[in-house]
Design a protein around this nucleic acid. Structure first.
Lengths: 112, 112
DNA sequence: TACAGTACACACCTTTTTGTAAGTATGGAA
DNA sequence: TTCCATACTTACAAAAAGGTGTGTACTGTA
């Protein structure tokens, strides 16, 4: 169990560190409806590489935003889901999403 | 006037492209109370380099989130401020900030 | 004359992030 | 025996992001 390190001093930066990068928010978004296996996550994010997916899942677990359950079976079965802290990210993603939608829409009427 | 390019297909990714990186949100946050000069922005974000600041301001201008006003004086005077679209980012930042605060607070009571 | 102040540009370098391709372990099915 | 599925790991390479240092333009001021 690693000590969680949060180097930044201001809360905006903290969040940026926790959630920054190309994939973390997309992974959390995939888990919004509950538990998923690695292979399911891959399907949900078609252009992520397996390495990236696992790597980012690990970071999210280190930050205590995602949990992992290993069934210890063969072939392996592992399930990922959001922690309470992870669920707290969902409304944030919703806002990001809405912002993107509005932004895109406004671009399509450049006459404004 | 460059055509604004938004390569991503989903609104979350669009937003991530617009606002991702280490500095953009911090710059927008600095502009929340109105117009600022470059030197003032630097003061507000002590550890950003001049190059990064200008570079990121340019990207924000390309995305139409920030505007620039050049007074054409010598020594140069230039002012930056948020566009309407840029102001729409502020509530988003507020949420990020609150998330960070809650996250940090929860870490300080690890007994939970 | 030398220097200060302001908003940049440019060259170069380091670090971080992301991607690619291969390999590992295991038991059951063919 | 060979192959499959699954969740990884590892080594390596490419690309993106970020940082440092220097230079430019111009005018006023000491």
């Amino acid at each position: 169990m690693e000590p969680i390190k949060v180097t930044a001093k201001c809360p905006i930066r903290t969040t940026l560190e926790l959630l920054g990068g190309k994939w973390k928010l997309l992974i959390i978004f995939q888990l919004k409806d509950g538990t998923k296996r690695l292979s399911e996550l891959k399907k949900g994010i078609p252009d992520i590489s397996e390495k990236m997916l696992i790597q980012e899942l690990k970071k999210l677990m280190d930050s205590d935003l995602v949990t992992r359950k290993n069934y210890g079976e063969v072939p392996p079965k592992v399930e990922y889901s959001l922690t309470v802290a992870g669920m707290a990210v969902l409304p944030l993603i919703e806002q990001l999403k809405r912002f993107g939608e509005v932004y895109i829409a406004s671009r399509q009427i450049p006459s404004l």
